[in-house]
Design a protein around this nucleic acid. Structure first.
Lengths: 201, 201
DNA sequence: TAAAAAATTTGGACAATGTCCAAATTTAGA
DNA sequence: TCTAAATTTGGACATTGTCCAAATTTTTTA
């Protein structure tokens, strides 16, 4: 493995374990058996390194969240579960989310675009669910409500889990939040959609 | 005003403006016209200072969240709105929430207790709403779902607003999240409760 | 009121951090 | 094999939170 890849890989490992802010470049370098300035050769600043990780997460999620034409409720929940699993692999990013966006202009700009895309995709998926008789949305309000709620959970579940559900395993945590999503969707499901949600309740 | 109070007051102001992590003790001291070591006399570490702010927020919220015996939906929503307003006055704490708990053992311990208390209060309030024919909970599951959802929103709305609804005013942001809460409650409301929620939809 | 004690404030030091740069070393191409 | 590019290194810098002994101010005591 090339030096650059080794840096990214070890950084993700240590950042996930201890938090981005609490892993110094010297500690990272020591774990890699290289010198600090060797890291800065590939990543001029720590932000650049973090930004790389964020890009990797974005790509991972892009591969997971495809627009599916014939989406049923089971497929939707499975897609969400995959996304949650991806996020746990990059949990350090999500835990430092707000600070990163406030501080790192590059990330802030990119996130603005990504967010719009993600919400649009979520919206499209919900409409697809409706088209396939999984849910029934009475109004545009119903749609925007669901998008808002699900976006909030998708972005901050891992933060809440870290402070409030530490004692649960990752899988149990994901299960819990999939349950929340299911119960939010429930009032809007058709019979078929409701049945598919039962395993998550 | 005594030095200690001045420190707390100015720290809250600067932390809210720029974020806890991005305001150094020297900058804070300069704004107060004192020396850094004067701050450390009252607060041995920056964590102690932050912890004080967190305590202040806790007290503020304790005064807001009382257990009301005869709680109607309007009263519940108003209480929630007051809580949100309190949180904006201490937004720096909520934005650094996860990191503070991971790093600061004193805060972590206290939060564990506070969280349990808060969730119990929320639970009691929802039961009170049911007793007063504002909502109807078919099962224990309904109750725990509502507690989980509302707790998540109450804790992270301000983080999401900071990254996703920057362009809105504070009042508009609060309005948006009260709307989310209202729509989550909606499926469980009685006629009376539903009517009270209309202004928030 | 004067002396002693306590509380407060100060300046300077410390180690750790992210960043930077010139020099040394290794690698790749002609 | 020689040269140029890429990579790696050691050391420096300013900034951070923390710490401590000394100086100063305030309060208490005799």
């Amino acid at each position: 493995m090339k030096t650059k890849e080794r840096i990214v890989s070890k950084a993700l490992e240590l950042f996930n374990e201890h938090g981005i802010e609490y892993v110094g470049l010297r500690e990272l370098a020591a774990h890699l058996g290289i010198r600090v300035s060797n890291i800065t050769y590939y990543f001029p600043t720590k932000d650049h390194l973090v930004n790389q990780l964020s890009l990797d997460l974005g790509e991972l999620n892009s591969n997971t969240i495809r627009k599916v034409d014939r989406l049923d409720m089971t497929g939707f929940m499975e897609m969400l579960e995959k996304t949650f699993e991806n996020q746990t692999r990059y949990r350090c990013i999500l835990l430092s989310f707000v600070h990163l966006l406030e501080q790192n202009p590059i990330m802030a700009k990119r996130y603005g675009e990504t967010e719009a895309t993600r919400n649009a995709a979520l919206r499209a998926n919900l409409l697809s669910l409706q088209k396939n008789d999984q849910i029934l949305l009475a109004s545009e309000n119903d749609l925007t409500f669901l998008v808002s709620s699900l976006a909030l959970i998708a972005r901050f579940w891992i933060s809440e889990a870290t402070v409030s559900y530490r004692q649960l395993s990752i899988q149990e945590q994901i299960r819990h939040y999939l349950g929340l999503v299911a119960r939010i969707l429930l009032p809007y499901t058709t019979g078929q959609g409701k049945t598919a949600l039962i395993p998550y309740l």
